[in-house]
Design a protein around this nucleic acid. Structure first.
Lengths: 80, 80
DNA sequence: AGAAGTGTTGTTTTATATGACAATTTTCAG
DNA sequence: CTGAAAATTGTCATATAAAACAACACTTCT
């Protein structure tokens, strides 16, 4: 997997978890104390975020950080 | 846990995994294509690394990225 | 003591993430 | 379809991660 796809994968996971909690990018961004524009870029995999940013998001979503490194789509297929 | 301690935690984990593989900071840095000085700072928790850097290290150590987010010392105590 | 190996710290440069704000596009309910 | 909300994209300034190199500290040898 390319680095590019890897970042996209993490972004997708953030999005999945955010939507599951029924909040907007803006709401999540506010909880993380950064701009909604940044959140958009993160979910799109356009940003190589640091572990502290990852931590902020994990707290805001109330999930473990390792959740971001699971390919949830794949997992859901395997669990069928 | 403070952000500072969080970074130290990750750094310790990198160090544990590196030592388990019996390689030096320099050797690991070479495999990651960066300076041994950077590796020293990462293990000391003085660097807020990006997910792509984390990925480089995980490949160089041949471990899953999630390994870095486990507090191995705690786990080893709980597993007794 | 001297040499080699390992790890730490300092500095500079470059690249890029983030903050802030604006403008535009997309999505979706009414 | 229309309008409002949500998301995306763009730009600029600032902060900081990463790369590169040097210097230093420390240990362990002979």
């Amino acid at each position: 997997m390319t680095n590019q796809k890897f970042l996209v994968c993490i972004g997708q996971r953030v999005r999945e978890l955010r939507i599951k909690r029924k909040i907007t990018q803006n709401e999540l961004a506010i909880r993380c104390n950064f701009e909604k524009a940044s959140m958009s870029r993160i979910e799109a995999g356009k940003s190589n975020i640091t572990v502290l940013t990852l931590r902020k998001i994990s707290k805001a979503l109330d999930v473990e950080i390792v959740e971001f490194f699971r390919n949830h789509k794949l997992v859901s297929i395997l669990n069928k």
